[in-house]
Simulated scan of single mutants.
Amino acid sequence: MGNSELWKNCIGPISKLIEEAAFTFTPEGVRMKAMDPSRVALVNFELSADGFDSYDIEGKRILGMNLEEMSKFFSRAKKSDELIFSFQEGENRLVLTFKGTSIRKFTLPLIEIEEKELPEPELEFTASAKVLAGMIKDGLKDASLVTDKVRFELLNEYFLMTTESDTGSAEMKLPVGSEGLQELKVDEAARAMYNIGYLDDIINVASSNDTIEIHLGTDLPLQLDFSLAGGKGRLRFLLAPRIEAE
């Protein structure tokens, strides 16, 4: 049994980026790593067995799922529902049971997907920060009024989101000591530009009061880490930069 809200909050945004993915269930927990068709975003989902109320898996099971269809079912989950995963061996289906005031069941046909090794690139980030998700959401809304891309900057004194175009500019700054910037570590100032549409989908994983861990290097992919189930799981996104023209 698991937390239906956790899965709902993760699968919905991920399905905006990736249509199909293979989930690997082992006695230690479940993991999924996939890249979007444009190879702009890499998603890495991990949840340990301790992140479930009860967990009973023998051996290794790889389950291919259509995330768009899965997200539709999770959209029907209520916040207080318990979630039960079970597998119908003969029919090759995943059963999702939402147990609350009522008991509702959905079945999802499993699909054949090859489990691909997608090693995460070795990136030399020079700065990191822990930021409230609500602050980033506000910055993205501001930037989207101007253009479809936004620049992230981490400097010794603050975290900065900026954008500009022929129609104007927008800026959101979080100085050290502000409530929205919980931690800032800068070995070397870093800046890079990213697509707002992708960031919007990614940030929807978190509620406004959740903390997002940002890792940044100049013109490197952006790494965003979300803690799950009180630290018993993690959702990581790597987003390729939009290289700025000189």
Rank of each mutant, 00 (worst) to 15 (best):
G231C: 06
L67T: 09
V40I: 05
S144H: 08
A229W: 00
K185R: 10
G177H: 11
P175M: 08
T24W: 03
K130V: 04
V95N: 07
H215R: 04
L17T: 11
P175G: 08
D166W: 00
R39S: 02
K33H: 05
T211Q: 04
L222N: 04
S48K: 14
D187K: 12
A127V: 08
G217R: 04
P241N: 10
E157N: 14
D56W: 00
G2Q: 06
L155M: 10
P37M: 03
L184C: 08
D50C: 04
R76D: 05
F25N: 00
F98K: 01
D36M: 12
F237I: 03
A206Q: 07
Y158M: 10
N9Q: 13
A22W: 06
D200V: 14
A127D: 05
S4N: 01
E28H: 10
F74M: 07
L145D: 11
P241D: 10
G139P: 02
L224I: 12
L140E: 11
S178P: 02
E19D: 15
E91H: 05
R191G: 04
N195Q: 12
D36I: 11
K137Q: 14
T162D: 03
E69Q: 08
E244S: 11
S75D: 00
R234H: 08
D219P: 09
E213D: 02
N209G: 03
F85I: 05
I57P: 06
M135R: 09
A49F: 06
K33N: 15
G233R: 08
E58A: 08
A34S: 13
K105Y: 10
S86G: 09
D187R: 07
A229S: 15
L110R: 03
D148G: 12
S86M: 08
E82C: 00
S169M: 06
L239E: 11
T97F: 00
F73V: 10
I14C: 03
Y158P: 01
L160I: 09
A143F: 06
I196C: 03
N195S: 15
L216V: 01
N195T: 11
S102P: 00
A127F: 06
E188Q: 09
V40K: 00
N195D: 15
D56E: 02
T167N: 11
E91P: 02
R31I: 14
G90E: 10
K149D: 15
A190K: 00
K141W: 05
I18T: 15
F45H: 01
A189R: 07
G233W: 01
E91A: 14
M172E: 12
T218I: 10
Y55S: 10
F125T: 08
P121E: 07
S54M: 07
G100P: 02
V131A: 07
F226G: 01
K232R: 15
K116I: 07
E164H: 06
F52C: 04
T97H: 00
L47R: 12
R61F: 14
K149A: 15
R31S: 15
S207A: 10
T147E: 13
K60A: 10
D201R: 04
I14G: 02
K16A: 10
E89N: 09
L118P: 05
L110E: 01
L239R: 05
W7F: 15
M135Y: 08
L132E: 14
L228D: 13
R39L: 00
G230D: 05
E153P: 04
M193I: 13
P221K: 01
E20Q: 14
A133P: 06
F152K: 12
E179G: 05
L220P: 02
F106H: 09
A245H: 13
L118A: 03
N195G: 14
